[in-house]
């Protein structure tokens, strides 16, 4: 990975986007086990229906992990200072998520602020957030 430098970064620069594989029921089962989030609303359709939902839906933290991959695909994780997201909408099974980001501000101390977003194949935003990166 070639790390960008503070000097060469400009406001408006995009991050290389990341598109995930389709989120399947298997994805949710494996993420439940690996992440420790065993909330049945994400893995048990009987529970989801009893709770008034038409189906299970993806963990918000799965999408946040994808946004994490967007960031660490651009700079090593050691450059990451802050990472925040709002969970805007539910992500359905079979969604294909694309994560995008851009530089919105250069700050003192070699810090760059990013706006980041995760959206599905219809362009519906699921997570919107910010990150703060310290560059060499």
């Amino acid at each position: 990975m070639t790390m960008p430098t503070y000097a060469e970064i400009k406001v408006g620069d995009p991050l290389p986007p990341l598109t995930t594989k389709e989120i399947t029921r298997t994805t949710l089962a494996l993420f439940a086990g690996a992440s420790g989030d065993h909330n049945p609303i994400h893995i048990d359709i009987d529970f989801a229906k009893a709770a008034g939902m038409p189906d299970v839906f993806a963990h918000g933290m799965l999408n946040m992990a994808y946004l994490g991959r967007l960031l660490t695909g651009w700079v090593p994780q050691s450059a990451l200072r802050e990472f925040t997201t709002r969970f805007v909408a539910i992500t359905q099974v079979h969604a294909v998520i694309t994560c995008t980001g851009k530089v919105v501000e250069k700050r003192d101390g070699n810090l760059v602020a990013l706006e980041i977003e995760a959206a599905d194949q219809n362009g519906e935003v699921k997570l919107a957030g910010t990150a703060l990166i310290e560059l060499p």
Binding site: G60, M61, M64, Q77, R81, E82, F83, T84, T85, F87
Partner: peptide, 11 residues
Amino acid sequence: HGEQAFTYGAP
């Protein structure tokens, strides 16, 4: 889950 924020220290 409305929002989630992280700050980073030692890996």
